[in-house]
Computed example of a mutant assay.
Amino acid sequence: MKWQSALAIYTLFWAMSVFFVLPFGVRTSEEAGVPLVPGQSPSAPHDFRPMRILVRTTIVATVLFGAFYLNYIYGWVTADMLDWVH
């Protein structure tokens, strides 16, 4: 596999992982016991920490890409195995 292909696939895993990571650890102002700012949505996160999300997303994406790459090398699951109509 070329490094450009690996980078593109890792980027896709990273972008997909953001949606897995975002909902975890979110606390609203009501849950934190802090009054709402006028105009603030009640469902808005109280303390948004983008660095924590970036680190968690990178860890999840790296694990998923590692599993993908190992499958690419060792061929644990191939396209022929997934052909149920055949």
Score class of each variant (00 low, 15 high):
19 F>N: 03
69 Y>R: 10
71 N>W: 14
18 V>I: 12
54 L>F: 14
22 L>N: 04
8 A>T: 10
13 F>E: 01
19 F>K: 04
32 A>Q: 13
86 H>I: 04
39 G>K: 07
5 S>I: 09
52 R>D: 09
9 I>D: 02
41 S>I: 06
48 F>N: 04
74 Y>D: 01
75 G>A: 01
50 P>M: 11
74 Y>K: 08
34 V>W: 08
39 G>I: 04
51 M>Q: 08
76 W>N: 01
73 I>W: 06
23 P>W: 07
45 P>Q: 12
21 V>A: 01
14 W>Q: 02
22 L>A: 07
7 L>Y: 09
65 F>H: 09
17 S>H: 03
27 R>C: 12
5 S>F: 11
3 W>P: 00
37 V>R: 13
22 L>W: 11
49 R>V: 08
72 Y>P: 00
54 L>Q: 07
76 W>K: 04
19 F>E: 03
25 G>E: 07
46 H>L: 09
18 V>D: 00
12 L>W: 08
21 V>T: 02
47 D>G: 02
14 W>H: 11
36 L>V: 02
30 E>L: 15
20 F>W: 12
12 L>P: 00
62 T>Y: 05
4 Q>W: 14
84 W>V: 15
73 I>G: 01
51 M>C: 02
5 S>Y: 12
9 I>Q: 07
66 G>M: 09
10 Y>L: 14
60 V>S: 06
6 A>R: 13
1 M>S: 06
31 E>Q: 15
66 G>I: 05
33 G>T: 06
72 Y>L: 15
71 N>R: 13
77 V>E: 01
10 Y>W: 15
64 L>R: 00
30 E>G: 05
14 W>T: 04
